[in-house]
């Protein structure tokens, strides 16, 4: 039995799972087909999903909302890439919580996503900057790629700075080198590129070039804050892409509200890109903790269900 089958039956075995979301059957009955998958590491994987209309509409910086099944959460994910000819969009997912780990075990080529809506959010503004640093950390490495490519196509000198924990987690190096004029890899342990955080890569690039017009940073909030602080003394415009908790992604719930320049903004319809020097990162990080106990509870129950199922299979 393949692992995807295992977890499908795991879901069916849960109490109360027989009820379906009302009206959900009117959604595309077959879902959105997964056409390719690449595993970058034990936790990070890439899915290519077929959606020609979305591949045509998507612009760098936008995101989608994914639902794994009719009991699932609506999970916001930044579009990592899109291929207008193949009619696919690419998502890079880090399996950290219940829903993303469930995706990791169930989303296989030939399968499908129950829900996929987007592209959402205001596309990143590809300014007429002459020299740009595109910074990606952790999961932010994937979505920074289409931005770097867009700046390159707009004729800018693009410096790519990406950060990973160690050399074996590095992905898309060739892809980045093809669109970046300069490319700096930073690893925590120094096993590839320079040893240190992406901020060191930024410092290095700023030291070499006195005329950086713009920095674009995508990654965990703590990294984006560090990037914004690194560029603040140099007064370099720094755009960040925020990832708060969302439900609908269409400006309806207000769960994704963030403080930018002292004003409340909804990341889903007013963003997700904002000026990094204006964003209240403390507020963002506190709000990301909102459902920690529930996340832990969901994770525990899911692991317990998987474990029980394995025991039953052994019997």
């Amino acid at each position: 039995m393949s692992s995807s089958d295992t977890h499908k039956s795991a879901a069916a075995g849960l109490p109360g799972q027989e009820e379906a979301t009302p009206g959900a059957e009117t959604a595309a009955a077959t879902g959105f087909p997964i056409v390719a998958r690449t595993d970058f590491s034990r936790t990070t994987f890439l899915l290519e999903v077929e959606h020609p209309q979305m591949a045509r509409a998507a612009r760098p910086g936008q995101f989608v909302i994914v639902m794994l099944d009719d009991h699932g959460e609506r999970i916001p994910l930044t579009i990592a890439d899109f291929d207008r000819e193949k009619g696919t969009i690419t998502l890079v997912i880090q399996a950290v919580g219940k829903s993303s780990r469930e995706m990791q075990s169930r989303c296989q080529v030939g399968g499908a996503l129950f829900g996929l809506v987007g592209p959402m959010g205001i596309p990143s503004e590809v300014s007429d900057a002459k020299k740009v640093i595109c910074v990606g950390g952790g999961l932010g490495v994937a979505p920074i790629f289409p931005q770097a490519r867009a700046f390159k196509e707009a004729g800018a000198h693009v410096i790519g700075v990406v950060g990973f924990r160690s050399a074996n987690l590095v992905f898309w190096e060739e892809k980045f080198r093809s669109v970046c004029d300069e490319f700096i890899i930073c690893t925590d342990d120094g096993s590839a590129g320079i040893k240190g955080l992406v901020t060191q890569g930024i410092e290095q690039a700023i030291a070499e070039h006195g005329d950086i017009d713009e920095v674009v940073a995508i990654g965990p909030p703590i990294m984006m804050r560090a990037c914004a602080e690194a560029t603040r003394p140099h007064k370099i415009k720094t755009m960040v892409s925020l990832n708060p908790i969302m439900v609908d992604g269409t400006g309806m719930c207000g769960g994704c509200r963030v403080r930018v320049g002292g004003k409340v903004k909804f990341a889903c319809v007013d963003g997700p890109d904002f000026d990094g020097h204006e964003v209240d990162f403390d507020d963002l990080m506190a709000r990301l903790q909102r459902y920690r106990p529930q996340e832990a509870e969901a994770m525990e129950q899911w692991l317990e269900n998987c474990r029980r199922l394995q025991v039953e299979e052994v019997r």
Binding site: P15, G16, T21, H71, E73, S99, V247, Q301
Partner: peptide, 16 residues
């Protein structure tokens, strides 16, 4: 209503 958070954790969406 939409995400059935009242049935968490059988439905994945939480509501505190």
């Amino acid at each position: 209503n939409l995400m059935q958070a009242g049935k968490f954790p059988n439905f994945d969406t939480p509501l505190e």
